[in-house]
């Protein structure tokens, strides 16, 4: 599985360094950049062989700072008052798909939020969004990716990891973007070997049909 670069504030420069050309792809950041800026990044990346560009809509944390997100057409205006029902998600998923198609990315990740807890129902809802995205992208060359957000401490239980993997592997999307939440500050090393081992297992299991499925450990819980 190749490494994917999560573009952060000004970190897109790393993609264009010769010695860092081994990335399998970049996860674009609509949080840090508006449509024009991401379109410009994609223009610079176009033509690179074996390099995937993934549009992640970054709807994870409606309570957090939104930076450029409100400038994007797909970003919901009613995120504070929404009930996050399937009916609410539907048009957002479709708009995210349209955004990815318009930008010409390799893949689009399904929208998801960071929940308070991680019951089975949460993962079932993620799959609903992933399947809707897969439907919306049919007939295009843009690949749908199932976003899976999991809590790293939960994964210390192998049975829990297998349960989550069993639910999310129901998705019709051929690849998965795995986002792992932990209590660490960014750029700190993980000290929990069980969680790390289970994360590897979940990554392997969620690697749905053999396509690269980037995983990320980034957001503090």
């Amino acid at each position: 599985m190749p490494a994917f670069h999560q573009i952060g504030h000004d970190s897109q420069n790393l993609l264009f360094e010769d010695s860092l050309s081994r990335f399998g792809g970049a996860i674009l950041s609509p949080l840090n950049y508006n449509h024009a800026a991401i379109a410009a990044q994609l223009e610079k990346l176009r033509g690179r062989n074996n390099f995937a560009t993934i549009f992640d809509p970054h709807l994870y944390r409606p309570q957090s700072e939104r930076m450029c997100l409100p400038e994007w057409d797909y970003y919901p205006k009613d995120v504070e008052t929404s009930d996050f029902s399937e009916r609410w998600w539907g048009p957002i998923v479709d708009a995210v798909a349209q955004t990815g198609v318009g930008l010409g990315t390799t893949a689009v990740a399904s929208p998801a939020i960071v929940p308070k807890s991680f019951p089975d129902d949460f993962f079932l809802q993620l799959v609903v969004n992933g399947n809707r995205l897969e439907t919306a992208l049919r007939g295009t060359i843009v690949k749908p990716m199932q976003t899976v957000i999991a809590s790293l401490p939960d994964l210390a239980s192998p049975a829990r990891a297998m349960t989550i993997a069993s639910i999310v592997s129901r998705s019709r999307a051929p690849a998965c973007l795995l986002v792992l939440l932990c209590g660490l500050e960014p750029r700190r090393e993980l000290a929990d070997p069980e969680g790390s081992r289970a994360q590897c297992g979940l990554s392997r299991r969620s690697n749905l049909v053999g396509n690269p499925s980037p995983s990320r450990v980034a957001l503090p819980t």
Binding site: M162, T163, A165, S166, S169, R170, R205, L208, V209
Partner: peptide, 9 residues
């Protein structure tokens, strides 16, 4: 297989 994820998808 014991878990659905380990069966044919």
């Amino acid at each position: 297989a014991r878990w659905p994820v380990a069966r044919f998808r």
